[in-house]
Write a protein that binds this DNA or RNA. Sequence first.
DNA 1: ATGGTGGGCCACCCA
Length: 262
Amino acid sequence: MRIATWNVNSIRSRVDRVTAFLERHDVDVLAIQETKCREDQFPALELSSMGYEYVHVGLNQWNGVALLSRVGLDDVTTSFADQPTFGDPPVLEPRAVGATCGGVRVWSLYVPNGRDLEHEHYAYKLEWLARLRADAEGWLAADPDAQIALTGDWNIAPQDDDVWDMAVFEGKTHVSEPERAAFRAMVDTGFSDVVRPYAPGPGTYTYWDYQQLAFPKKRGLRIDFVLASPALAARVDGAFIDREERKGKGASDHAPVVVDLA
DNA sequence: ATGGTGGGCCACCCA
């Protein structure tokens, strides 16, 4: 079974790339982030005609997450417990969707960006990660053998090697100690990064800014991850970042991350 | 190629 995660930066503008990616890599389950559309705007026909079931949560042009699966899509959850809200009035943003696909509990997660260290969005990000971790700890406590994949755009570069130049990120989000501590806490809870062993750094990234020719200049960040519970991690027998997908006209600024299960 | 972001959508926000 093959699972992938991809921040597509608008599913409507990227649907042809998504269908081509699914075919090219024979993907069974795809977690999508930043669909940037309402549920009624989701390109359902293109994807379902390929044999994928789907669930999408989207309120407007912001955020939006989805799961596509051709190995079943059961027990759908469109948020996690105590998922924080943002804004005034408070909105439960569409940033998390979970479903059981072929015996694996897969989550598509779009962690808040944080914007700046002083911004309320940054406090929101840390709270969001803390509540996710607490909920995920409960899932493992309830069933230590559960196969759980926490996939998505984490908007955290856990290690210095995960950014092209640490000096550029001094005082910025994505590399701050509280964010890295939140990521480590997920790992300490039992969810390990199953891609890094197959795609080691330095210089291995999943995101490159559209600006300043960042991609050809190899100026990227590793911020998209698949974190697996112990039982799932034991099944992983391969993983890669599809850097080719960042090339050419009409690319997302993120590359897909793919994990193979025995 | 001597440039230099792109997606939402229509006045800017977000990444």
